[in-house]
């Protein structure tokens, strides 16, 4: 039994425009994440990868299909059971600043999951754990009294990570956690995430559109296109011999670090901008 099992997840959103066609964000997605591994979900904007990241945490309800965490079907839980279960599954968002309440101090932001899930703890114990986790993510204890707006983007994202891991989850969705950060900061955050994974045995669902990042951090990669997973493979295999033509296109779109290497981009038929009418059969 895998840690996370998603079966035939389907989600259709009503169109934003009146009378527009509904958007099929997820069209029968199935995947498994094993304890301690990183599964990357890669795909272009609008491929449904962020929807998938939220659906596995039941932040939005699926139209069809199931999500099981440790064998427990999340849809079968009562609201309070689900809230309790949330200690085990967390999320880090793409936008570090927007994901922090601007009126709360860093300390109380990081303390909140503890207040929710470990009600037995006294204020002093919570304080100690908060300082510990802040140091673990590379922030000095003194930031606890600051407001989110007083920190840099990289520091804000460290706070987001601290908040996600403080309740000792087994599984964390990383929704493009580095795509709004500078390159140098990006590397630091990725290193931090890898370190936390090694220390705490976390499993990650790493949602990204960036092949370079994904290559570095993931054990396996699932390629999403128009709401479907078109290919899943161990990272090494996927880069060595991509099977699906869309994957080949994604890989060919990468730029090499070596300027002498010839860049051969191969276009792919079908574009996510025509989502309303996806190809009946993904070209294979």
């Amino acid at each position: 039994m895998s840690l996370l099992e998603v079966e035939n997840a389907c989600k259709t959103f009503a169109s934003r425009q009146r009378g527009g066609d509904p958007v099929q964000a997820l069209r029968g997605v199935s995947l498994q994440v094993e304890a301690g591994e990183t599964l990357a979900i890669i795909g272009e904007s609008g491929s449904g990868k962020s929807t998938l990241g939220r659906a596995v945490l039941r932040l939005l309800e699926l139209d069809e299909g199931s999500v099981r965490m440790d064998g427990v079907d999340l849809a079968g839980l009562s609201p309070s059971e689900l809230r309790a279960k949330r200690a085990e599954m967390q999320i880090v968002f793409q936008e570090p600043y927007e994901s922090l309440n601007p009126r709360m101090s860093i300390g109380s932001i990081v303390a909140e999951p503890l207040q929710i899930h470990r009600k037995g703890l006294g204020a002093a114990q919570i304080r100690k754990l908060v300082i510990e986790v802040l140091e673990r993510v590379g922030l000095p204890a003194k930031v606890a009294t600051r407001l989110p707006g007083e920190l840099s983007g990289g520091q804000q994202q460290r706070v987001g990570v601290a908040r996600a891991v403080v309740s000792e989850p087994k599984f964390v969705v990383l929704d493009e956690p580095t795509s709004s950060l500078d390159l140098s900061i990006r590397a630091q955050i990725l290193e931090l995430l890898a370190q936390l994974q090694a220390d705490l045995g976390l499993a990650y669902l790493f949602v990204s559109h960036d092949m370079h990042t994904v290559e570095k951090v993931s054990d396996r990669i699932a390629v999403m296109y128009l709401g479907e997973i078109v290919e899943t493979a161990p990272t090494v295999d996927l880069f060595r011999s991509p099977q699906h033509p869309y994957t080949q296109t994604l890989l060919s779109a990468r730029l090499s670090a070596d300027p002498r290497e010839k860049h051969a981009y191969r276009a792919y038929e079908g574009d996510a901008s025509v989502r309303a009418t996806p190809p009946q059969q993904a070209p294979a």
Binding site: L59, R83, R86, A87, I91, F93, E95, E98, G160
Partner: peptide, 23 residues
């Protein structure tokens, strides 16, 4: 996003209202 984050961490409705919305 921060309300979504609070939901994701399992915050109850009163907590959402008094800690995240009202302030």
């Amino acid at each position: 996003r921060f309300v979504e984050a609070a939901t994701a961490m399992g915050a109850s409705t009163p907590r959402l209202i008094f800690r995240h919305l009202l302030p």
